[in-house]
Design a protein around this nucleic acid. Structure first.
Lengths: 150, 150
DNA sequence: GTTGATGACTAACTAAGTGAGCAATCTAGT
DNA sequence: ACTAGATTGCTCACTTAGTTAGTCATCAAC
């Protein structure tokens, strides 16, 4: 048995691993698909997702996105040009600027993901406490496994 | 209560939804991280993942990747230049070429993902039949929800 | 055998990233 | 108070991976 067939065989061994594989495959597609529909790049959407949680500066943004500060500047430029975000100069520190999301930016993120979220919440609500415990343990374990490669 | 806070609140309501969110966040990061470590672009890695399953032509590749045929040509050029893939002219149809993965290409895909997979298989092996049924149902439901946005 | 369709590639351009470097501002040490 | 160094965000020049449009070769149908 070749190295490779052991790999693919194992992926397909159990219903749960198969479903997990399908889920991760879809998870990879969601962000690009939403970005595309919204007429944004992947990083612009990721930026909006972060800005929904609260304002942040270009430097911090470049760090969480894993891109250069030059790229971060450009992303904010583009979002600002479309009215999805605004630059506000920092109150106490004259060097810093704070980027805040606008209503249209919020609508872009929330609007496109809401249907998916509603379904997930509905699915989740159908779990008993015991089932939820099992599912949570599995999901956390899978996340742990994925962290090893990240 | 604002539209937005309902959204974020709901995400954080249950342990399972929180874990699912974390998992999907990681799933998005895995492919770019692996590609980066292997010195490949995301699409080059995706191509190798498809080629592991069997040879395919540039046209088919451009369709599954969702890029133009011109881009597909370039991706294959780069993979070929690194020795990860080879172009073989099609036996019966002179127009078509078949792209096959090389040992180094296979090693790139399998080698980087094997540790993650091993951990996932181990986690999965710890499930009872009843637990696996619960987990599978949840994962399939989550996948279904994500498909609505894709 | 000609005609139209198909598959892969090339050419010219666009967009989003990089690295290097600059101006403004803050912080610390004297 | 003032200078020296650190930090922040931005601009410039360039690279790279994508796009559209169009070419060439081959195949299938009439």
């Amino acid at each position: 048995m070749s190295e490779d067939s052991r790999w693919t065989d194992a992926w397909e061994q159990t219903s749960s691993l198969l479903a997990l594989r399908e889920l991760t495959r879809l998870a990879e597609q969601v962000a690009p698909a939403v970005a595309n529909r919204a007429g944004l790049t992947h990083n612009e959407l990721r930026t909006l997702e972060h800005l929904v949680e609260g304002p942040m500066g270009p430097g911090e943004l470049s760090r969480v996105l894993g891109v250069s500060s030059a790229a971060s500047s450009g992303i904010i430029d583009r979002l600002e040009a479309r009215g999805h975000a605004r630059r506000v100069s920092h109150a106490s520190d004259g060097r810093r600027t704070s980027v805040t999301i606008s209503d249209s930016g919020r609508a872009e993120v929330v609007g496109h993901l809401m249907p998916m979220f509603r379904e997930l919440a509905e699915l989740d609500a159908g779990l008993t406490d015991a089932e939820r415990e099992v599912v949570t343990r599995y999901l956390r374990g899978a996340a742990r496994a994925m962290r090893t490669v990240t």
